[in-house]
Amino acid sequence: MQQILFFFQKFKYFLFFLFLEFIALSFTFNNLNFHKSKFVNSANSISGGIYTILANSSEYLELKTLNEQLSAENTRLKNLFAHNKLFSTEDSITIDTTKYYQKYTYTQAKIIKNSYSKPFNFLTIDGGRNQGIDKEMAVVNSKGIIGITDQTQNLYTRVQSILNKNSRINARLKNSNYFGTLNWNGKDYRTVQLSDLPRQAPLKIGDTIETDGKSTIFPEGILIGTISKVNTGNTIDNKVDIKLFNDMSNLRYIYVIKNLHKEEIQSLENTLNE
């Protein structure tokens, strides 16, 4: 007994040091698992509040680019609308509300903390459970995809960016519907990688990549980027580099997309597995 007490007395600082290191390590490992980091994340009210003050003050300097983005998005939507009008006359449109079947809802939010220089990047947005945002929802803006929501608090949400080595997103070629997995190698924030494409898929530099509707998170046809490099050698995973439409270093307003059919699709998939 005396020996044990003496041992503790002698190594008390070392044991305290080991104890703290162990806590830090467990936080680190939890943080890398998707939506497991309950405790250490920037979506809490203190850091979220401070980041909101900072974002509100720096936002004023970006008004010009934000207006340009908004105007470009309006133009694109108006063009889509005009295209639809061509094939129908105004007075013959009837919307039968009993047949109307909405699949997605959009919520607007603002990025208050951005990061793009690390291998595992997370963003923080100023909307949370009070705005109806939950985990595993798509985050996009007018130019393309940004990420998936990860941790939700009442007022703030942490988003796992597509610039995160753990991100896996289902994506396809726009012109041929061949699909693969979108991931990131952690090097350049302007390019991501699309792997697991079938060998026979026709790949050309400049082809557009968009999201595939096969996951319950992203709707079909959200833009991602264009092919910038094709590997011609015999590689196993047939990887192509994709230049993103979004400039991930300069983001502000985003939409969070909620899939209203998610629970139904997931329960169906679960019954198939049993």
Binding site: A24, F27, F29, S37, V40, S42, I46, K118
Partner: peptide
Amino acid sequence: DFFSDSGGIHAFSTI
């Protein structure tokens, strides 16, 4: 770590 979403990496290296 709380502010930069890095788990416990800063804490680990600082201690």
